[in-house]
Simulated assay, not measured.
Amino acid sequence: MYYYWHGGDIKKAETEIFKGITLKGKYDVVENAFIQATLIDPYSIDLKFSLASTQIIQKKIPDALQIYKQILHLDPNHFNTNLVYGVYSRINGDEKTYNRSIAKLKKIDSKKANEYLQKIKQTEETMEEKLNVEVPANLPANGHAIVILGYALGEDASMKPTLIERLKAGLAIAKKYPNSKIIVSGGVPKQGVTEADAMSKWLISQGIPKERILLESNSTDTVENGLFSTAILEKENIKDITLVTSASHIRRALTVFKEASDFYDKMNGKKSNRKFTNMVYLDYASLAEAQKVPNDEKLVIYRDLFRTSGIWQYPGLQR
């Protein structure tokens, strides 16, 4: 896990930890570590769940499904495993297993099962939403925020073209709606500069007043973008949000932000009725192509939905 979070010398890991197993990248390191851990402690469900999570990250769905089946043989009433096993089976083309899993979830905890069915329904609807490549019309003049999601900086802290294109889209909205706040979301500092720092500086250079910009500079991925930005939305009492990112990323981002907003509502005992619109940088050949949702994208959308809803990828280690 240290290697997963911080990187390291693959050759050294091959020699000292994995005794000659050839590794291709950090996820190989983590997967092999959990394989060994499950052999050392075959009773640990958390270790098996972590192994399957690593396989899901690598899009090894059949391998992960086999591990989930092992968990369910040991603990048939494990709610989280029944849930992810059913949904990932459905993405893999197995509707019967999905239906059996949902029926099992209702027996284990009907209230919680129905809550997740609502999350799944909302996610399916989000995947059908129209992507906007132009500034949305009729956005509210007040109580509205533009949330621009970050993208990894270069080692020299420079912004890559993808991030600049997202900023251009956000800038177009900001010019049309001058009363809207702008949240720039992204951490992972390079040379002491976070994504949010770089984004804010760029927007200011384009004539946006500094006081319009709110920095969210702690997130390291989409789930944290959603959770940490929602905390800002709560503080600022913002109910209307236009989310700006790449077309290939927007459905996952919207899913995460909606789930994060629902969680804050539940935690605070209220109904904020936040409205989400979108504007995208088109990183596809055409808008028609961008509207399609391939299975690989569905996989990461649901993976991040589950993480945002409180299911840890690596129980006790990492959401």
Rank of each mutant, 00 (worst) to 15 (best):
G192I: 10
V193P: 02
A196W: 02
D197Y: 13
K201Q: 14
L203D: 08
P209R: 09
K210C: 01
K210M: 07
I213K: 05
I213A: 03
L215E: 12
S217H: 13
S219V: 10
D221H: 15
T222S: 15
T222P: 07
N225Q: 10
G226M: 14
L227I: 15
S229D: 01
T230D: 15
T230S: 14
A231Q: 13
I232A: 05
I232N: 00
I232S: 00
L233I: 01
L233V: 00
E234I: 01
N237R: 07
K239Q: 02
D240Y: 01
T242L: 00
L243T: 04
V244P: 08
A247D: 10
A247N: 09
A247P: 02
S248H: 08
I250W: 05
I250M: 14
I250Y: 02
I250E: 01
R251E: 09
R251F: 10
R252S: 10
L254V: 03
K258A: 03
K258M: 11
E259M: 10
E259A: 13
S261Y: 04
D262L: 13
Y264H: 04
D265Q: 08
D265H: 09
K266N: 09
K266Y: 10
M267F: 14
M267Y: 15
N268P: 09
N268D: 12
K270T: 15
K271M: 11
K271G: 04
K275T: 05
T277K: 03
N278A: 06
N278R: 05
N278M: 06
L282M: 14
D283V: 09
A288R: 07
E289T: 14
Q291Y: 08
Q291M: 15
Q291G: 03
K292I: 14
K292V: 14
N295C: 03
D296A: 13
K298E: 13
V300R: 13
